[in-house]
Design a binder for these strands. Structure first.
Length: 393
DNA sequence: GACAATGATTTATA
DNA sequence: TATAAATCATTGTC
């Protein structure tokens, strides 16, 4: 149940101060507001009114609190408005108190001509007046604090509102999801890294950050929605699978080049890759590449890695996406790659296992195998510690 | 304005 | 305690 905060009741004039005025009950802020008000009420006097020139410490504190929360724009303007009204009203009360006291003193002086008036009586009268005004001033302060607190809660409430993640952030999360399709349960570290990565990306655009719990939410939603309607996500899965493939291809190409550069005596393994073959400027071209990879029509490059990628194709369409022919094609490409990579050294363990055709991943009953087992990762495309790898699958 | 997409919340469960 | 599943509520698109 979401609560909606009402509009802050701004104390616009002395006559409008809510006499009950005090609804910050229960909250620590309320307690502290009351405590401060009590302290302030104790020392309230006409003379003390001059102490109001510096900004109210409580309001200053709330102000700082709001600023720390990132209050800006209209909220901040409203805060300034509240403070201005508060100080204006306070001044008015103090002036009225002064004037009224002077007036009563004059009256008493007048009366002293007809009857004896003791200084004690004058003091008592002034005391009564001051007490009355203090009480009104306290109400003003309480109302102001209330308005500020409402403003704050409204701001926090607004922050709870749903905001779509940036495109880049969603892409990062999707990349992870589809490259870990057999076990889309990022570890705590992976979540942290994803959150970090997303926030870095997002901060360049929207200026917000994504927390670890938001990453968890995202994966929770993604898993359930993917499982519910695999067909709907097929295109997306293809796209990200292609992306992963391209990334892997780049990494392999780099590894091969590196290997050749480091070992001038090593003959060319026959696995030549031109970088332009992997330039995919559009989703369409990625899809084309993907299609070619699975049909073998391109000839330039076929599936480099990613058992998950094949898994996604399988699981998306039941158990026979392009069937064994594709599987064999993929297998041969993987074998070629494995051979190349084994020559470049360093990733044998990572790619040494071929689980491409094992029926892992999404179960027929709708669950993921090894659910709740965080995937740990070392990948040829990203290296140790990266969140983008699923070689454990 | 209708509808789909999506982030957040709640509840139940292992 | 993490997750699944259902649901809510907002945002974006047409």
């Amino acid at each position: 149940m979401r609560c909606r905060s009402p509009e802050p009741a701004l104390p616009s004039s002395a006559g409008h101060i809510n006499p009950a005025g005090l609804c910050l009950y229960g909250s620590p802020a309320h307690t502290s507001v009351m405590r401060v008000n009590k302290q302030r009420a104790k020392g309230l006097s006409i003379r003390g009114s001059q102490e109001e020139d510096p900004p109210d410490p409580q309001l200053m504190r709330l102000d700082n609190m709001l600023l720390a929360e990132g209050v800006a724009g209209p909220e901040k303007a409203k805060l300034t408005q509240i403070r201005q009204i508060y100080h204006t009203e306070l001044e008015k009360y103090e002036q009225a108190c002064n004037e009224f006291t002077t007036h009563v003193m004059n009256l008493l002086r007048e009366q002293s001509r007809t009857r004896p008036i003791s200084p004690k009586e004058i003091e008592r009268m002034v005391g009564i007046i001051h007490r009355k005004f203090s009480s009104i001033q306290m109400q003003l302060k309480q109302s102001t604090c209330e308005a500020v607190m409402i403003l704050r809660s409204r701001f926090l409430d607004a922050r709870r509102k749903r905001r779509n993640f940036s495109k880049q952030a969603t892409e990062i999360l999707n990349e992870y999801f589809y490259s870990h399709l057999s076990n889309p349960y990022p570890s705590e570290e992976a979540k942290e890294e994803l959150a970090k990565k997303c926030s870095i990306t997002v901060s360049q655009g929207v200026g917000s950050t994504i927390t670890v719990s938001q990453v968890s939410n995202w994966f929770g939603n993604k898993r359930i929605r993917y499982k519910k309607n695999i067909g709907k996500f097929q295109e997306e899965a293809n796209l990200y699978a292609a992306k992963t493939a391209v990334n892997a291809a780049h990494a392999v190409a780099a590894a091969v080049q590196n290997s050749q550069a480091n070992s001038p005596t090593t003959p060319n393994s026959g696995f030549q890759m031109k970088d332009e073959e992997f330039q995919l400027d559009s989703a369409e071209s990625k899809n084309t590449l993907l299609t070619n990879m699975f049909t073998g029509s391109s000839g330039s490059f076929n599936l480099p890695n990613s058992g998950d990628m094949f898994l996604s194709m399988q699981s998306l369409n039941g158990d026979s996406y392009l069937g064994a022919q594709v599987g064999a094609n993929v297998q041969s490409q993987v074998d070629t790659l494995r051979h190349v990579i084994s020559q470049t050294a360093g990733y044998n363990d990572a790619l040494g296992r071929n689980t491409m055709y094992s029926p892992h991943g999404l179960h027929a009953n709708g669950g993921w195998q090894n659910a709740r087992t965080p995937s740990s990762v070392i990948s040829p495309t990203e290296g140790p510690g990266s969140v983008y790898s699923d070689t454990s699958n």
